[in-house]
Write a protein that binds this DNA or RNA. Structure first.
Lengths: 332, 332
DNA sequence: AAGGTCACTGAAAGCGGTTACTGCAAACGT
DNA sequence: ACGTTTGCAGTAACCGCTTTCAGTGACCTT
């Protein structure tokens, strides 16, 4: 186990050729006679030689690898995002390095460090400080994922304003009053946008919006916590607009567990349209966001951007409201 | 953006010293006079020089990086695992590369490729073929995570047999008959173990076990699907033993959505004791598994094993049953 | 038959660091 | 006063691979 690997030179010696020829054979470039090629291949096969990536990287001046930086990876959102990103990277023959910050304060260092291990970095909104973002962008191409473009760093994001349509639907079409918003606007640019769209919809409908959101995280357990906070209080809301589906599902579980009827006693909406959203009872009204496409677009922009600068600077992907039963609409 | 980085030689020229001195200053080794050190540091600061990781790697013959290979990363399990692994790696000053296979057939290549980019690899059970595992282990230290040791490759795992205690509890203490098992034993060594412990408990209690499990994945949505399959059939089970908490929560949601009472009409148990397990209503009876510790132990074993061979070969972490209300026990 | 083309192969120069070894001057010991 | 230690800095040899450039026959052309 862990035997030291053979190098080109050793293989070259064994095959009685020069290192140049071994390199040509192993990467299939240049011309090598049929006979020599076979001899070298036999030796490579026999000794299980695989060229060292670090040697290759150093010589080629490229890593064949990009990184994607996340705050955390719980929940289906990041899973989908990664898949979209990876599938696209794979097509370009590029590896993907996933870096999770877990909101650690020293994670900015890791990101900086990463800059000299990859050819490009996609950074999820609000995972590193602006200063760090600039320094990283000075070394390698960077794309902001689910955030706003900044200092010439392009961004890819989804249209969060659609949550305003959902809010309008609850206020106007269903006539609900006293809505609550679950999500921490300070936590990510996405949630900031959504909270603002929620407020804007209230203004348009001339209904007073709640002064504060319920500033919790984006996981299902946060939704359950939010349900406790909202429903055990003395003036529970009539409807809850959640920053994402996970928290909406948490609120739903919390409400059902308390014997409440959804949407009868409490209407609930989410954002993302994860698989669970259409599986629960009642099915969740939400906003469909092309998460996988978001990841794929980011990867494309990042990888193509490695060559040519100054293409798309701010890709905003369309989203659409999905009306199901959790808001009070009849099943169609 | 993306300017080419400065090299040691350029910094050396700017600071009017040799590359050796720059290297000594930047890594804080060897002796350098106060005066020279300050001059070099000033230049480094001024030009924002950061030594290239790949140059360093090549010279030092170590990457300062280990990898962890997962089948996917949906759900809290992998999130916890990663955190445990990373926190431990961080203490050792080692970076972590996360590789997600998504069950792609060509992912074995990525894993092999990874072998020349890191100093060690932790591979989650059943994510790569045995043959691949051997080849990787021939190049770098490898630890199997949540799987069995193999061909001299050490493993770290949790004691899955405790699910047998839970099964016994349902059969004997509660006297339930007609249990179902949700999980695909072919999907991972963990589920294999759990399915076997489930069957063994039936034999011990002299109750006929169901012939087949409900072979679905480990995500919450799979649990909802399982609920559909089990509860809409003509002989629904009295209790469901799920391979993990996520599916158990899915089954719970499915059952509640159908207007069933849990545990009155259907008892449910899980495995993992994720945060949600104690938040839902009724709270979930499950097996507590030290997921974070599992990750941490794996990292420790992997990183320490880089130096000395032949230490622990099979670490089995203890687990314990957690009896709450979803199995039918009264709330304590 | 001389000159040119072509296919193949090897020697050597990097890529960006680290570090063993060497050199030099100043300080020290006897 | 002379040899020795000590502190500091530079030269050059790697680390594993790619690639340019040059060299060598064999084969064509006129």
């Amino acid at each position: 186990m862990g035997n030291k690997r053979l190098t080109v030179r050793e293989i070259a010696k064994l095959a009685e050729v020069s290192v140049a020829t071994v390199s040509r054979v192993s990467r299939g470039t240049g011309q090598v006679s049929q006979e020599t090629r076979e001899r070298v291949l036999r030796i490579i096969e026999e000794y299980g030689y695989r060229p060292s990536q670090m040697g290759r990287t150093l010589a080629e001046q490229r890593h064949g690898m990009v990184a994607i930086v996340f705050p955390g990876l719980a929940g289906p959102y990041f899973s989908e995002l990664t898949q979209g990103f990876e599938s696209q990277a794979m097509e370009a023959g590029t590896g993907v390095h996933i870096l999770v910050t877990h909101h650690r304060p020293d994670s900015d260092d890791s990101v900086l460090d990463m800059a000299s291990r990859v050819d490009g970095i996609a950074i999820h909104g609000d995972t590193v400080r602006a200063e760090t973002l600039r320094r990283v962008a000075a070394e390698v191409p960077v794309v902001v994922l689910a955030g706003r473009p900044m200092d010439g760093v392009p961004a890819v994001r989804a249209d969060n304003s659609t949550i305003g349509e959902l809010t309008r639907h609850l206020l106007v079409d269903h006539g609900y009053r006293r809505l609550a918003f679950v999500g921490n606007p300070g936590g990510s640019p996405d949630v900031t946008d959504r909270w603002e769209a929620f407020q804007a919809a209230h203004r348009q409908a001339r209904v007073t919006a709640p002064r504060n959101p319920v500033p919790l995280g984006l996981q299902q357990s946060d939704g359950v916590l939010a349900a406790g906070e909202l429903l055990d209080g003395r003036r529970p809301p009539r409807a809850v607009v959640c920053a994402n589906d996970e928290t909406a599902l948490g609120v739903l579980i919390g409400a059902l567990g308390r014997g409440l009827s959804v949407p009868g006693d409490l209407a609930i909406t989410g954002f993302d349209d994860v698989p669970m959203a259409s599986l629960v009872q009642p099915r969740l009204t939400t906003v469909r966001q092309p998460i996988r496409e978001l990841g794929a677009t980011t990867a494309r922009l990042l990888i193509s951007g490695l060559g040519n600068r100054g293409a798309v600077m701010d890709a905003v992907l369309a989203t659409e409201p999905v009306f199901r039963e959790s808001c009070g609409c009849p099943r169609t």
